[in-house]
Design a protein around this nucleic acid. Sequence first.
DNA 1: CTGAAAGCGCTTACAG
DNA 2: CTGAAAGCGCTTACAG
Lengths: 334, 334
Amino acid sequence: MTNIKDVAERAGVSASTVSRVLSGKSCVNEETRRKVLDAVRVLDYSPNVLAKSLKMGHSNTIALMVPSIENTIFPAIARGVEDTARKNGYTVVLCNTDEDVDVEKEYITKLRTRWIDGFIVASMLPNSDHIRRLWEEGFPVVLTSRYYGDPVDAVVVDNFQAAYNAVSYLIRTGHRQIALALGRKELPFYAERWEGYRAALEDGGLPYDERLVVHETNGTNSFYHLTKQLVKGPVKPDAIFATSDPKAIVVMRALHDCGLRIPEDVSVLGFDNAYISSLIEPPLSTVSQPLYDMGVIAAKKLIRRIRSKEDKSLYEPPSVEVMPTDLIIRKSTR
Amino acid sequence: MTNIKDVAERAGVSASTVSRVLSGKSCVNEETRRKVLDAVRVLDYSPNVLAKSLKMGHSNTIALMVPSIENTIFPAIARGVEDTARKNGYTVVLCNTDEDVDVEKEYITKLRTRWIDGFIVASMLPNSDHIRRLWEEGFPVVLTSRYYGDPVDAVVVDNFQAAYNAVSYLIRTGHRQIALALGRKELPFYAERWEGYRAALEDGGLPYDERLVVHETNGTNSFYHLTKQLVKGPVKPDAIFATSDPKAIVVMRALHDCGLRIPEDVSVLGFDNAYISSLIEPPLSTVSQPLYDMGVIAAKKLIRRIRSKEDKSLYEPPSVEVMPTDLIIRKSTR
DNA sequence: CTGAAAGCGCTTACAG
DNA sequence: CTGAAAGCGCTTACAG
């Protein structure tokens, strides 16, 4: 690979000058500028970013930490992040953690020694002090789809309100026995949806009945048996609100296999608006999150925060961006 | 961040010595070794990978180039790649290209100036000379799910055979009017599946009828109208083979909306075995590709190729790994 | 406006 | 076995 000295030599100037015209920060005589640019073109030179990073103390690289890129919501978020990063000259490193604290830590130390500029983290359990330490040190971090009230940048959705609205809709459309297919409740966003469900029930004058709350036991597929048990149990649901679309789809299959019609016998409402949800039969009613846009905003916030370390005028106190959700009614609810 | 000099000072040795004990390549007196290790521990030192990369000429980073991480098959491949990379001390940069040549080129030059160690590319049209140039220069590349006969490492699936088997199965189970829902035929793997379809028809003694081949016009959703047209047309299919699961799901919806039962009136067979396929109603029969494993193997091949540049004993000529596919029969075929 | 020099944090031949 | 020195390819204060 050709380096800055080659260019300098060819242009008949010093390396400093080449660096100056390329950075564009200092004044350079127009003529020498042209000579340098010519040399750059002829030699097809592009500066070694590694050397630059070493000198400058930043790498124009950000990390995206997700539990698993295979989970429904993360590809869209990742795409939003990457598109935005690329447009701003940043590169993104993908980290799957399975929410494993050791993997998270390993990534954090490894990437920091590479002078990563910041983290977008969607993989964080409430008491993750190793992540918390990051922003306490002043390291750029933005949380996405996870947030626990810390003074840190975040991009989230109002899970409580979204669930509240969804369940209120079911009540308003005449459902009286609304079950909940609830994901792992250690994950706060599921806990929040659960609270929204309870609040909506209460405000709608419906009793909260533990027997209608189905807790995930062993992965998404566990809802197949759990749903079958539910509908054969003592209290029959006339609607099931699932805390994610994949869960809703499993629920629908179980219902179908029990000979129940959707939505005539039981309505089903999901959460996420996964790509597939509009394509299945019946098309799934669901709460949509603006996943791609969440990725975009998270990346923008992070880049702004990174840049504000150099340029204090860009500084803003940490803030959390609450993105709108949307209740999309298709054919799985009556 | 603490650096090698801090450690050297604390241990009372030179930076060279610290470097030596950390690399473990040269002999170091056991006692000084211990002192260094102690200092490392006390100071919680981890070497700056950037500086190391600059010196060594490699970065322990690989790039994964996909059309879009939002497409069904890529999250699983990406996960396989990333897991394997991490276990081997590599970090992975995610690149979405939308098959746009300019974006591909931009990424290639940008990442090379960062001394990326290699590329796994799943985004490549047949005449992509900028990618071809990479391995011609001796740069480590492995192709995945795309391959055009070049002398380069690749991990693929036998699309022709997989489609041949799928269609043969349909013929064997009594279908006589087998339609094909075909993706963009500029993409060779779709073209190959098309050929497999034709060959199976021919070997099964069935005529090839252009009217049964439905070409994608405008995204996956276009199959909704195309399928409706097809079933209202002059030649009625008794089975539809879709070249991807999302297409199959759209086809199923269209069929359903036309009042046709699956599989009683029309069988539907997909390709990919996407996560969702077993969950929908009826569960989709499909051709499964070992996506995660393809990612694993691609990463292993790439890392081996990278290491073989240092250690000639690891060298092997480029080879293409053909992964097995599996015909999974569920309930969408009779 | 421009060049020589120092330095970012490492590694490794070269001496000893 | 160990240290001083050079160098990976940049950038930027310091002189001029």
